[in-house]
């Protein structure tokens, strides 16, 4: 069943794109998810049916564009949320009621993406990508931030992806305006990946879950389609070249990719699914306005016939597909 529910916004005239979505690790039970929009950050406690604005405590005089949102893997106990905004990073330790503005850098950066270490409880690592200043890294749960841009030759970072096996391989990928970079030391130094430069910008990234074999890297581009590398980035193969035509906004890999090589790809006009590692694709039909552009995808309970999907759209609505 597919249902469409517009965000129940306090201010009706704020119709703006959903730029990022995040869900609680315990979504199955608490149904908590977040939507970052040009007008601010919103939270839902009922799996995306209803939403409420989270920046009231900041007493802002205007909308605060929120470009990224990430939750601590220890969400159930620490209720920690990081929001990337135009000017820096906000942190909440009570699920979004109160916020602290983190002093990231001068001049204030425009944060485009935030990722949290899967081993956050032990290492406290949070990494933020920015549109002009490269990457900032915090190793103390977001209290202090330092730029780490050794080898990052393009400081316009559009997307970051953290390895599911980060605790062991400390690997991250950064998609930028002109290419793809990899870090193997937890985001402190970067080396360019041999991704064809003519296919950039890289706007979405996904890594297959940790397994005995080398991680498969999936790269979504603005205009050139979807690519994957099975050798750590040395060689690339285009996937779905006849199906995936638009900007690849989001890629989701099955948590059991080695056994069940399932992929979901969101382009601006279609949600595509592959069950054979990207060899063949089919479009998942959605009950939506065909004119509506889709911008973000969230699979809080993984990929599966009954798993819920949340799709952020350019008009500010979030489609809830179940």
């Amino acid at each position: 069943m597919t249902t469409t529910d517009d965000l129940s916004l306090a201010i009706a005239d704020r119709v703006d794109s959903v730029l990022a979505l995040a869900a609680s690790p315990g979504f199955e039970h608490d149904h908590t998810c977040f939507a970052a929009r040009e007008s601010g950050l919103y939270r839902s406690g009922d799996g995306g049916v209803s939403w409420h604005y989270l920046y009231d405590s900041l007493k802002l005089t205007g909308p605060l564009t929120t470009t990224a949102v990430a939750l601590s893997p220890e969400w159930q106990t620490d209720q920690r949320v990081f929001a990337g905004v135009d000017g820096g990073i906000l942190r909440s330790t009570d699920g979004g009621k109160e916020w602290v503005i983190m002093n990231v850098a001068t001049p204030p950066p425009l944060v485009s993406t935030v990722v949290v270490s899967p081993n956050f409880a032990a290492d406290g690592i949070v990494i933020a990508g920015t549109l002009e200043d490269g990457v900032f890294r915090s190793a103390d749960r977001g209290n202090s931030w330092q730029p780490w841009n050794f080898g990052l030759l393009d400081l316009c970072v559009l997307v970051l992806a953290i390895s599911p096996d980060f605790i062991h391989d400390e690997m991250l990928f950064a998609g930028t305006e002109t290419g793809l970079f990899r870090s193997t030391n937890g985001g402190r130094a970067w080396r360019e990946v041999n991704f064809p430069a003519e296919h950039a910008p890289v706007v979405s990234l996904a890594l297959s879950p940790a397994s005995d074999t080398e991680a498969v890297v999936f790269v979504g581009t603005e205009e050139a389609g979807l690519f994957c590398s099975r050798d750590g980035g040395d060689s690339w193969q285009q996937l779905g070249s006849d199906t995936i035509k638009d900007t690849v906004s989001a890629i989701v890999v099955s948590p059991q990719f080695a056994l069940c090589p399932e992929l979901l790809v969101l382009s601006s006009s279609a949600l595509l699914i592959s069950q054979d590692s990207g060899e063949s694709w089919s479009e998942r039909q959605l009950d939506r306005d065909a004119e509506l552009e889709m911008s973000m995808l969230l699979t809080p309970q993984g990929i599966g016939p009954d798993a819920p999907l949340l799709i952020g759209c350019s008009d500010g609505s979030v489609l809830r597909v179940s």
């Binding site: 002009e132 200043d133 490269g134 730029p147 841009n149 030759l153 393009d154 400081l155 316009c156 930028t176 305006e177 002109t178 290419g179 360019e192 430069a197």
Partner: peptide
């Protein structure tokens, strides 16, 4: 810090 030159030019130069 964070010069706004063309990253592609920077790669070629390096």
């Amino acid at each position: 810090v964070a010069g706004k030159g063309n990253p592609r030019e920077l790669r070629r130069h390096i």
